[in-house]
Computed example of a mutant assay.
Amino acid sequence: MNEALRRAMAQAHVTDRQLAERCGVDIKTVGRWITETGRVPRARHRWITCEVLGEGESVLWPAAAKKAVKIGPDREVVSVYPYRSGCPASLWRSLITNAERELTFAGYTNYFFWLEQSRFGTALRRKAAQGCRVRFLIGDPDSELTRSREKEEGVALNLSTRIRVTLSELDKIRSQSGIEARFSGGHAYLSIFRFDHDMIATPLLTHRVGHDAPTLHLRRYQDDGMFDRFASHVEELWSNGTPVWGDASDG
Rank of each mutant, 00 (worst) to 15 (best):
120 F>N: 05
120 F>V: 04
58 S>E: 15
221 Y>P: 03
164 R>L: 02
37 T>K: 13
62 P>K: 12
201 A>K: 10
108 Y>F: 14
207 H>A: 15
73 P>A: 12
247 D>L: 11
60 L>R: 07
88 P>T: 05
105 F>Y: 04
162 R>V: 10
202 T>N: 15
65 A>M: 09
193 F>S: 14
228 D>T: 13
50 C>T: 02
33 W>S: 01
5 L>P: 09
44 R>L: 13
138 I>D: 02
174 R>L: 02
54 G>I: 03
180 E>L: 15
145 L>G: 08
39 R>Q: 09
54 G>V: 06
126 R>N: 08
48 I>Q: 03
48 I>A: 02
135 R>S: 02
146 T>Q: 00
81 Y>Q: 07
126 R>E: 09
123 A>K: 08
56 G>W: 13
88 P>W: 11
35 T>F: 12
250 D>M: 15
94 S>M: 09
66 K>A: 15
103 L>E: 03
101 R>I: 07
152 E>D: 11
51 E>T: 14
24 G>N: 03
92 W>P: 06
241 G>Y: 06
93 R>G: 07
206 T>R: 13
39 R>D: 05
114 W>Q: 00
198 D>P: 13
4 A>C: 08
19 L>C: 01
10 A>N: 12
54 G>L: 15
170 L>Y: 02
177 S>M: 11
217 H>D: 03
178 G>I: 07
165 V>E: 04
8 A>E: 02
80 V>H: 01
175 S>L: 14
248 A>G: 09
75 R>M: 15
72 G>W: 00
66 K>H: 08
233 H>N: 12
166 T>M: 04
97 T>M: 09
104 T>Y: 11
176 Q>H: 06
241 G>D: 01
59 V>H: 11
212 D>R: 11
218 L>G: 00
168 S>P: 08
56 G>Q: 12
24 G>W: 07
192 I>L: 09
124 L>D: 01
88 P>Y: 07
151 K>N: 09
162 R>E: 05
91 L>N: 07
46 R>G: 00
240 N>D: 08
251 G>V: 11
